[in-house]
């Protein structure tokens, strides 16, 4: 019988992840669900975590890596303390999402997908949260910020960063 691997460390989150896999009966087709839980627990998909998942679900490493990099919801890089996800869907675009993105990029010297060097802020973009009425909008640390313009965005960020 296949002996499932032991967690690489006694980090509690691995236990949690194991329970999650068990709940899915270690089914190989639960990979995406398991990666969601892993990202939720660890904040991002660390190599170590993905390898543990691959071994536990008896999936080839290349397959797990292939799946994790196909879906843009998964991130393989650690995130900053704060995150700002700018919506770049159509309605937001029509109302100036590109200018908002640019203003943040200029202010903090990072590009879409990057994190500032001091790990304060990660800048991300997403395709439509279905909140087009608030366009242009962003989600800053999980909170919806709607009807934005450049000033309002930067002010909002100043309110949460470095405090």
């Amino acid at each position: 019988m296949y002996v499932r691997p032991k967690p690489p460390s006694d980090d509690k989150r691995f236990k949690q992840l194991m329970r999650e896999m068990k709940r899915h009966g270690y089914a190989r087709n639960s990979l995406i669900e398991v990666l969601h839980s892993a990202q939720e627990a660890f904040g991002y998909l660390e190599d170590e975590v993905m390898k543990f998942v691959a071994l536990s679900l008896q999936l080839p490493l290349s397959k797990v890596y292939g799946v994790a990099t196909f879906y843009s919801f998964f991130t393989l890089k650690p995130q900053g303390k704060h995150t700002c996800v700018v919506c770049t869907g159509t309605a937001c675009y029509i109302k100036g999402a590109d200018r908002i993105m640019e203003s943040i990029e200029n202010e903090y010297g990072i590009k879409d997908g990057d994190t500032t060097e001091d790990d304060e802020l990660s800048l991300l973009s997403a395709r439509c949260f279905g909140s087009c009425n608030l366009a242009p909008m962003a989600i800053i640390d999980g909170e919806v910020a709607g009807y934005l313009d450049e000033d309002k965005t930067l002010k909002w960020l100043k309110g949460v960063l470095y405090v």
């Binding site: 490493l61 290349s62 890596y65 990099t69 196909f70």
Partner: peptide, 13 residues
């Protein structure tokens, strides 16, 4: 790995 124009053949991890 990846998708679209960023697709690429990988070996293992």
């Amino acid at each position: 790995e990846g998708r679209g124009i960023k697709s690429n053949i990988i070996t293992d991890f």
